[in-house]
């Protein structure tokens, strides 16, 4: 499931967990777990941001004027890209 998930993320170009769950025929919770596992093993990385992490939005004086819906970003790491390349080679 994890390899297919990584390939599906790469193919889609964006992450929509419900769409990935439907594509892989897995429950959404399992797809969310898959994300966590791929992050844990270093195939996928969450964009932590540079400074907002230490400053909860509620305490930021500009929070009310900022993006109301924070956008979560993911990155396929070099290790993940190697895996995708190997998968492609293996057909």
């Amino acid at each position: 499931m994890l390899k297919q998930l990584l390939a599906a993320i790469n193919d889609a170009g964006y992450v929509s967990k419900p769409a990935l769950a439907a594509e892989l025929g897995r429950p959404l919770v399992l797809v969310e777990e898959g994300f966590a596992a791929l992050v844990r093993m270093g195939y996928l990385a969450e964009d932590a941001g540079a400074g907002c992490v230490d400053l909860p939005c509620g305490k930021c004086p500009y929070a009310s004027m900022c993006q109301k819906e924070p956008v979560q970003m993911w990155k396929i790491t070099d290790k993940g890209r190697d895996l995708l390349a190997n998968m492609q080679r293996a057909g």
């Binding site: 992450v15 929509s16 967990k17 419900p18 819906e69 956008v71 979560q72 970003m73 990155k75």
Partner: peptide, 10 residues
């Protein structure tokens, strides 16, 4: 360029 993939909320 950092290659990031955006998660789209419903």
């Amino acid at each position: 360029v950092s290659h990031f993939i955006m998660e789209l909320p419903p």
